[in-house]
Design a protein around this nucleic acid. Structure first.
Lengths: 169, 169
DNA sequence: CAATATTTGATATGATGGATAACAATTATC
DNA sequence: GATAATTGTTATCCATCATATCAAATATTG
């Protein structure tokens, strides 16, 4: 869409009228943009990711990294291809990502004995510990704030619709 | 998060049991990932943008370009900084974007007479025509399909919540 | 079994979006 | 009139995403 982080401007300064049709000094009219679901979707997503980063900042985890750790925890014994594809990450791009996590000793590649081509990706103890702390931060800071804003019922409805779009649209 | 376009894998092939704990051959467990709002948000956003691109493909407009045209139409007489910042685009990045639209004769930069630093960005006639066609495509193909999936009431509720998150979170 | 095809992780590379610093021209402020 | 701020622009960097290709290992097939 567009919809970058903020790109602040309009610090509220005095304007003079421009003689042509525009209402100067005022905020621009979003118009039909505010009815475009994709636009609000993108802006909301950026906000949520920003807040996620803030909440998990002490652990230095991005949303993507967090999702990998979560997946590793729930799915032991899987190889890179399986993990990556489940998250919609292309195999080539997953290599550097794993390198990052492995270099921090959050997970480890282990050669599979069944298929010596593949690397089983395992959570390390440190990875489990970091994941546990991250989960707590996400739950108590990030998701809790969302619950506060929307209310539990609305939050559930929102999640349900988003999942439906992701799966069925 | 992660959440790329598709990165298809798992083309459904025969597996053999791995002797360790994992249930092979089955899809991976998303686990708590399916409760993470940010995750669903990102996946839904990618789906929506993909569909938008498909629907507007005949006009070769990205969501970002469409949002610019919409904004220009509703806000004549504004300069680059105002347009860009409203959409959350950083001024430097908006230059190339405008270049693209201007080279296709969808809009034009006009030196302001009041402030000769700034460029007023105007929709051209062709820009207006393309925008009109784009609006129709978006309404009849893209948004209509969403309405079909969610129902009008749910769609409105979804939009409302996303806007709230974008504005208040 | 041998030949061929496929899969896995990896590398290189390109395209795109987003962010910052710096600059010339212009305007605002003091 | 000197200094500061703003506008559009360029250059540059970083991250994400996508494709082609490769060697090693495995699967398939004749």
């Amino acid at each position: 869409m567009t919809v970058s982080r903020t790109a602040t401007a309009e610090s509220g300064k005095a304007r003079k009228e421009p003689a042509d049709g525009a209402i100067e000094g005022s905020a621009l009219q979003l118009g039909e943009l505010s009815e475009l679901l994709g636009y609000s979707l993108k802006r909301a997503q950026l906000r949520i990711f920003d807040d996620f980063l803030r909440c998990v900042a002490p652990l230095q985890l991005t949303p993507a990294q967090f999702s990998v750790l979560l997946l590793l925890d729930k799915n032991p014994g899987r190889n890179q291809t399986e993990i990556a594809s489940t998250l919609g990450i292309l195999r080539p791009n997953f290599v550097a990502m794993l390198d990052g996590l492995e270099s921090r000793d959050l997970c480890a590649r282990v050669r599979s004995t069944n298929d010596r081509r593949s690397h089983i990706v395992e959570l390390t103890d440190k990875g489990r510990a970091v994941l546990a702390r991250a989960k707590k931060l996400v739950a108590t800071k990030h998701e809790a704030r969302l619950n506060e804003l929307l209310g539990p019922a609305n939050r559930a409805a929102l999640l349900s619709m988003l999942t439906k779009i992701a799966q069925e649209f």
